[in-house]
Amino acid sequence: MSLDKATVRRIATLARIDVQEAELEPLAGELSAILGWIEQLQEVDTSAVAPMTGGTDAALPWRSDVVDDGGQPEKVVANAPDPQDGFFTVPKVVE
């Protein structure tokens, strides 16, 4: 699978990464190479293996329905630019 410039531009936009026009072409080459490398896995016959969603056998740990966190609003917003009245603030999002 090889990626073209337009696809790379779209991926960059979705990921909110500012990629310069001149970088698109080289990135397309690098990403295509990575994809090609991973595609080698397709050569392995997995017809008898159930699909996996993780690399370990670890079970999902469960927690009880108990409130044991929160109550630290000043810490939550401590690293945010310009918190006001306990809120995060961002440039106005117009819908």
């Binding site: 927690r63 329905d65 108990v66 409130v67 044991d68 966190d69 929160g70 109550g71 630290q72 609003p73 939550v76 917003v77 009245d85 306990g86 809120f87 995060f88």
Partner: peptide
């Protein structure tokens, strides 16, 4: 309907002061 959130131990109570129920 629960006491705590889906993946954290912060409360889900309605109407609390901003960011007081955040892990």
């Amino acid at each position: 309907v629960s006491q705590a959130k889906l993946f954290s131990g912060a409360s889900v109570a309605f109407g609390a002061a901003p960011n007081t129920q955040v892990s």
